[in-house]
Write a protein that binds this DNA or RNA. Structure first.
Lengths: 336, 336
DNA sequence: CTGAAAGCGCTAACAC
DNA sequence: GTGTTAGCGCTTTCAG
């Protein structure tokens, strides 16, 4: 491996000077600089990031700790995050939680020894914070920046950049009500998901704001995961039980797709018999038939917001930590 | 940061001994060992991966270099790869190519200085190998293991673990022919995609094997990306032009979804009027209406195969490098 | 079986 | 403006 020493020798200078040229923070004679640059070129030298990291105490990578990269808009999130981080010369380590809390603790503990600069936590999973707070605290004390992007953890002193799930759900309900689609069912309140919870809260708040009755039998909890099959099952059961509803707000696009399939399988017409609104803004939703109306998340804006926050944080001063809201947008298609 | 030195002091031994206990490869007295372990426990010591990496010359992470994490089964691929790598104590660095070849060269050049152990290349993009081969070679010489998982690059001395795209397409055609769905169209031959090419080859070969005519007007190229809108457009145009076909094999599930939407929008019945087969095995495909028949990829098997190959490779001995084929499976649903 | 010492590649102090 | 030196934390000789 070509090292600073080799470059220095070739340029007839000391390793320190090579380092100075590389850093660009300390003045170097134009002539020396040119010789060093030339040597670097000739030798095809590349600074060793690992050595730099060891020296500096921390490196140039962040971990994206994600609930389930396979689901929903998480792929898009990963893509956007990687792109934005790279713009700042940062690398992205991917760590899939598979929704297991012990895995989160594990990566928190490993972060400092990996030289990670920070940790982007994208899990909607409601965690046992008593068990986790010490791990978070320890990481922050070691200089790890933590930003939560799926649930608001600002109360714990963790900077959060989350979508306006509540507002998004409200907008959806407003729309559904405006087009006379009450009663409205909600699918996807999951006891373990902060996102499911927030979207449900928006649903309930909006009903209340409009003076609409809240009917618990129209809220369909699902055990876990916002998968299409859960939506299918919930809707099928509701239909079997003869529940009366004219529309469904789903906590995810996948869920909504499952719901729509269930309605379609019973020969129901969408949106005439039942209207459906999804949540997420999956590209594929536009190709469901009918095309799905959905509350679209702006993951690109979120990624940019997260990156602009990096380095800015006042480490974990629990009181003042803010939660930044990323606006959502109702995309009207034909399902509602 | 708690270091070996601190642990050593506490246990009353030398740093070397601590290291030996950690490594477990060199015999240590049971007593000493116990004292060291205790000190580690008390201090909450964690070995610094960065220092280890610097010392060893390479670390414990691989890069997953992916064409577009947002598309198709790539999310599933990332998830499975991360899980399997972690089983071997390896971390996964995510690098999204956005289908740009210069980005691949870039990461190849950076790999050694990042201490990467290897590079999992998942891009179907057909690249200018003249421009890339030197970069590949340089990386391999520096000890980077490279495995290609989306296209067969064994001719270049790069171990490849790819799905049996050709066989999968053949099976789909066999099925379509058996159910009297000729003529069969193919959508998704992309000039820049090795995957699109391989699946197309399977389509053409199977037609030939069955003595079916090959009609070029039934092969719909798309400019790039296996997105649903491309499928929608291609199918719409074909229908507008009055082309005669009874079924469509798509090079991806997204594409197929777009195709089905186009047919549905014209009031065509699926599969009675036109049958559709997708490629990939996206979970969502089961909730299209009608449910989509698709050639499912076994990404889990692929990830396991890749990991079992790590460390096994005889670095880039161009002649003998093998291409491992992962079988696909036709999942019959109602669209064909 | 254990300790001392060297060194992976880099950069920040400290001289000059 | 530039060179010398030390040390980030680890493991691996080499002695003992």
């Amino acid at each position: 491996m070509v090292s600073v020493v080799a470059v220095a020798r070739r340029a007839g200078v000391s390793p320190a000077t090579v380092s100075r040229v590389l850093g660009g923070r300390v003045p170097v004679t134009a002539d020396t600089r040119a010789r060093v640059l030339e040597a670097i070129e000739e030798l095809g030298y590349r600074p060793n990031e690992v050595a730099r990291t060891l020296r500096a105490g921390r490196g140039r990578s962040l971990a994206l700790v994600i609930g389930d990269i396979q689901q929903g808009v998480n792929g898009t999130l990963a893509k956007n995050m990687q792109r934005e981080l790279e713009r700042q010369g940062l690398d992205l380590l991917l760590f899939d939680l598979d929704h297991r809390q012990d895995r989160l603790r594990h990566i928190l503990e490993r972060a400092p020894s990996l030289g990670l600069r920070g940790l982007l936590l994208s899990s909607p999973h409601i965690m046992d914070m008593n068990a986790l707070v010490p791990a978070f605290r320890a990481a922050v004390e070691r200089g790890i920046e933590i930003i939560s992007v799926s649930q608001d953890l600002s109360a714990l002193g963790i900077t959060s950049v989350v979508h306006d799930d509540l507002g998004g759900a409200r907008t959806a309900i407003d729309h559904l009500l405006a087009r006379q689609s009450a009663p409205i069912a909600f699918v996807g309140r999951v006891s373990t998901s902060a996102i499911g919870r927030a979207r449900f809260d928006g649903y309930r708040d909006a009903l209340r704001a409009h003076g609409q009755p809240f009917d618990p039998s129209l809220v369909w909890d699902i055990s876990e995961g916002f998968r299409a099959d859960a939506g299918y099952r919930a809707t099928s059961e509701a239909l079997d039980r003869g529940l009366r509803f004219r529309s469904v707000l789903a906590a995810s696009d996948e869920l909504a797709l499952g719901c729509m399939a269930a309605a379609a399988d019973r020969g129901l017409s969408i949106p005439a018999d039942i209207a459906f609104v999804g949540f997420g803004g999956l590209g594929l939703a536009a190709f469901a038939r009918p095309p799905m109306t959905t509350v679209a998340l702006d993951v690109d804006a979120q990624a940019r917001a997260v990156c602009s926050l990096l380095g800015t944080q006042q480490n974990g001063s629990a009181g003042s930590t803010r939660c930044h809201l990323v606006p959502t947008q109702l995309v009207l298609r034909q399902s509602a």
